[in-house]
Amino acid sequence: MEITETQLDGAWLVAASGRIDSNSAPELEAVLPDRVQHHEATIMDLSGIAYVSSAGLRVFLKGVKAAKATRHKLVLTGLSATVHEVFEISGFTAIFAIEPDIDAGLAAIG
């Protein structure tokens, strides 16, 4: 998995590509909760992610808990149909703000 980060207008963007599984989840865990705690608004772009395992879901759960604890915003964008289905089955679509793309994510934060 590859992770890139960028400052956007009004939000911190974390973009990942590849797979989020038990091997790569620790890499995302080292980034996402920290960024959410230190930035009032974080967009996590998953348009480059083809697969998310339960280990990946755990990292996202840590991220949303960090957002709620600090009253910051976390928006997920660009979920593929497969990844969106994993979020639906796990009930995570009720927990997360999910938008189709980064522009919609910025609008949701604004």
Rank of each mutant, 00 (worst) to 15 (best):
A50K: 11
V31K: 07
A66T: 08
K65C: 07
N23T: 13
I43P: 00
T70W: 05
D45I: 07
L46H: 02
L74N: 03
L61W: 07
A15D: 03
A66F: 06
G18A: 11
S22L: 14
A41V: 10
L46N: 00
A11G: 09
T77N: 08
V52I: 15
E88W: 12
Q37G: 14
E85F: 02
I95V: 15
G110K: 15
A15Y: 03
S54W: 10
T77W: 01
L8F: 06
A97L: 15
I95N: 03
E5F: 12
I95A: 08
L74R: 04
E5I: 11
E27H: 10
E40N: 15
D21G: 06
L28G: 04
A67M: 09
H84V: 05
I20T: 00
L28Q: 02
I109S: 01
K62S: 12
I109V: 07
L32D: 02
P26F: 04
Q37E: 15
A41P: 04
A104I: 02
T4V: 13
E99C: 11
D9P: 08
E40V: 11
L61Q: 08
G105N: 04
G63S: 12
S90P: 07
R35V: 07
I95W: 03
A41S: 12
I109C: 03
V36P: 01
R35C: 09
S54N: 11
D21T: 03
F60V: 08
A97V: 14
V83L: 09
S24A: 05
P100A: 07
A50Q: 14
K65T: 12
G56F: 03
G56T: 01
V14N: 01
G91M: 11
E88M: 13
G110N: 14
M44N: 06
Y51F: 14
G10L: 10
D45S: 11
E40I: 12
E5P: 00
R19P: 07
A94K: 15
L79G: 03
S17Y: 08
K68G: 11
I95M: 15
T6I: 11
